[in-house]
Amino acid sequence: MALPAIAPYRMPSAADLPANKVSWTPDSQRSVLLIHDMQRYFVDAFTSGASPVTELVANIRQLRQHCISLGIPVVYSAQPGGQTPEQRGLLLDFWGAGINGGPHQKQIIDALAPAEGDIVLTKWRYSAFNRTQLMDILRQGKRNQLIICGIYAHIGCLQTASEAFMNEVQPFFVADGVADFSWENHQMALNYAARLCAVTTTTQQLIEQLRPQAIRGGAPLSRQQIRADVVELLQQDAALGDDENLLERGLDSIRLMSLVERWRNTGAEVTFVELAERPTLTDWYAMLTSTAQPPVEVAAAFQRGVRPTA
């Protein structure tokens, strides 16, 4: 039941990404970077000096440095060595005893060694949320996005992404910042994440998007762009009326959150509740092309039957 030796395979690129179901945008003020289980025990299963592990380590290093420069917290997960059968639980049946009690196997590889200020969580099960303080770290920091990299993609990384999603945390699954037993397992993880719980992306795409707001923001939204974005998501024609209730035209909470994320990336200061409470293009033109926006009661949006979760 030891880990299998992993044959080399090429690391996925941007061309291999599946179509994402949502258009969430990473934000340096909302994100935490998770480096998942990059311990010698797991990394040593790969063929040293070959793909995908060479790209894996290089990309995580680059992403970690970029996150540090933006003040994004860096969290590591690491499984303990020398677990008792009681501590190991059902993992014992699937994977055996796991990491031994010595100092070598449990260490995070030197190339990604945690620095002062990084957080290292002791991880007991597939998900990095299970029996750890990861959710507390996110909530206390008022952060609701989790960038996931590490190994193995279709096991712990994917389980962590799924649990993040179920706790209202947006996961970003770094396609060339994770690795797996095989190309097939790797692609399975990407496809599942994109369809059901996360945004799949690449290291370079994340670095491009994770910029200070002053750099990332572009020109103010135009009326034409606002309409085009709505028409695209609703798959409606351009005859959509400016004063129509967009909720009645099929704009559900998932699509509405996608619009919020898209427009925030342009520098617009807008919230889910503000759009949901006044769901017409006319109102949105006024909100998104104005620098001053009136406060909105959360209860008003709820009375219209919209929730900020699917």
Rank of each mutant, 00 (worst) to 15 (best):
Q87L: 14
P80R: 05
F172T: 03
A78C: 05
P171M: 06
N144M: 08
D118K: 13
V74R: 01
L134I: 03
P114A: 09
K123A: 01
M166C: 10
Y76C: 12
L92H: 09
R125L: 07
T122F: 09
F165R: 09
I151A: 07
A153S: 00
N144R: 09
C157I: 06
R139Y: 03
T132M: 11
G81W: 10
G150V: 06
G102L: 15
E163C: 10
L112E: 01
I147M: 06
L134Q: 00
Q170S: 13
G101K: 15
A128Y: 00
W95H: 14
I99P: 05
W95D: 10
L91V: 08
A113N: 02
A113Y: 05
I147K: 01
S77E: 03
E86I: 15
D176S: 10
D180Y: 04
Q105G: 13
H104R: 10
A161W: 03
Q107I: 04
A164H: 02
I147C: 03
R143Y: 04
L90P: 05
Q133G: 06
W95S: 15
A164C: 06
L121I: 12
K142V: 02
N130A: 13
P171V: 02
W95K: 15
L146R: 05
C157N: 08
V174Q: 04
V169H: 00
V74T: 03
G177L: 06
P85W: 07
I155H: 12
G177K: 11
L90W: 11
I148C: 12
Q105H: 14
S77T: 10
Q79G: 08
K106T: 06
P171S: 10
G150F: 06
Q170Y: 12
F181M: 10
V174S: 07
G82M: 07
F165T: 05
E116W: 09
V74W: 01
L92M: 14
I109V: 00
Y152C: 13
P103T: 13
D93C: 15
K123H: 12
A175W: 11
C157V: 06
G177N: 10
P80M: 02
F94G: 14
V74C: 03
N100D: 08
D136I: 14
F173D: 03
G177A: 11
K123P: 03
I109Q: 00
E86P: 14
Q170C: 10
V178E: 05
W124S: 00
L146S: 05
G141K: 01
I155T: 08
G117N: 04
N100A: 09
G96T: 04
R139I: 05
V75E: 07
V174T: 07
Q79V: 07
A128V: 01
D176G: 09
Y76K: 13
A97F: 14
C157P: 02
L112R: 02
S77G: 12
F173L: 13
Q133Y: 06
G117T: 03
G98S: 14
